[in-house]
Nucleic acid binder design. Structure first.
Lengths: 125, 125, 125, 125
DNA sequence: GTGGTCTAGACCACC
DNA sequence: GTGGTCTAGACCACA
């Protein structure tokens, strides 16, 4: 039983995503230290092993690096790297679905553009 | 343990969504019969009760209706109803996230528009 | 076998009705908590799922609302809502049968009125 | 499990009720023959034993009588008898509930009277 | 503790 | 065959 349904995104991926977002936002600066595995585990109410896995993954992606005994740090160039990765992901995975929806729901790009300009104003004001 | 992370969408909601998509695509015509609870349960490898719940929800939304002993049928006007609902959902829930990403990744609307035109051509050709 | 006879009202509907009556009587106050699914299941000697279904139905009717992990609560305006619904039901379903009986049994409205005034006195005294 | 909920009225009682209604309506005349147990069983899609039980009960109430080998017949005075019985039942069982509802729903007797006059007109026209 | 969801399997009424 | 209801018991997320 329980057929071909969308599974929940793995928790370690969600943690990695959170880190990436903070790098993009500038909350985490390049070469800056990120919170320890133990800290993050407590803050996010998650098992330290899960955080460990997230950090490992980020390290493999060359987004962060580790100094033994000192902790994890944001790689120089991480922001650009993340931006590229996320951009590709958005273009290859998100956009097609998004476009498909626009088409099915008969929403014009103009309509969306208007919304976007309103969105930008809302953020500025 | 396991903090404030995204929950998996309920299976019965995913089933309901599938039906809605098929209505939008025209795969399910108005006043046409949709597959029985038991059939769907088997093809989707899910418990009949779960399908029942999905159909019940769709019925409450006035998207489908039931004839006892005969089955479930697509309501007339269902397509318009679904289109409206999904449109609102996209505008209120999907777009803000999408716009936030565009901003973070510094992608211009023009870039997206170009992709969309390519997408449309790809479908046409 | 067993022809076109009256079906038993579904248990979950009877539970919902009980809740509605208590709201009308003022036993359940607006914004007040109602007994939990499990509690009700035990006191009414019914499966929790059946109570769940009753509560879900009441929620869809906007008579009660839920706070996750805290319980179900009576909606503000529930009493008025219930009163309206029950009034319509009485007028459309109960009255015609009642009138038909009066006619068949040749009971005059005056006779009933007298009984009603006695009934009111009985309650007052 | 399954607590103190209203049970379905016994089928034999529903059959007896049907007979009574027909007597009241004049469909079944006094001293007239009523359809045989076997006939009724087929028409009502019910087991003959159930019909037998209904007829027995009506006989005990002195509403019908039996002539061996000929069938069941409506008793003279049956209409008056039924009328009395039903009247008492309506006054003792139905009216109190009905009055309770009127009170809870704050419906005035005048309102009901108006409805009744409309009901009578609807039947006459 | 709460509600929310799911599974497994049962019985009923309708067609 | 269909849908409609109910039971029994399980697991999850939230507080």
């Amino acid at each position: 039983m329980s057929g071909g349904f969308k599974k929940q995104q793995a928790i370690y991926e969600q943690i990695a995503d959170t880190i990436c977002e903070r790098i993009l936002q500038g909350t985490l600066e390049e070469d800056g230290k990120i919170s320890s595995i133990r800290e993050t585990a407590i803050t996010m109410e998650v098992n330290p092993n899960t955080v460990q896995r997230a950090y490992e993954w980020l390290q493999q992606q060359e987004i962060i690096y580790t100094k033994r005994g000192r902790g994890y740090f944001v790689n120089s160039g991480a922001m650009e790297k993340v931006k590229q990765t996320k951009k590709e992901q958005l273009i290859n995975e998100v956009l097609p679905d998004f476009f498909k929806s626009l088409q099915l729901l008969q929403i014009t790009p103009e309509e969306v553009l208007t919304k976007y300009q309103k969105f930008l104003k809302g953020k500025t004001s």
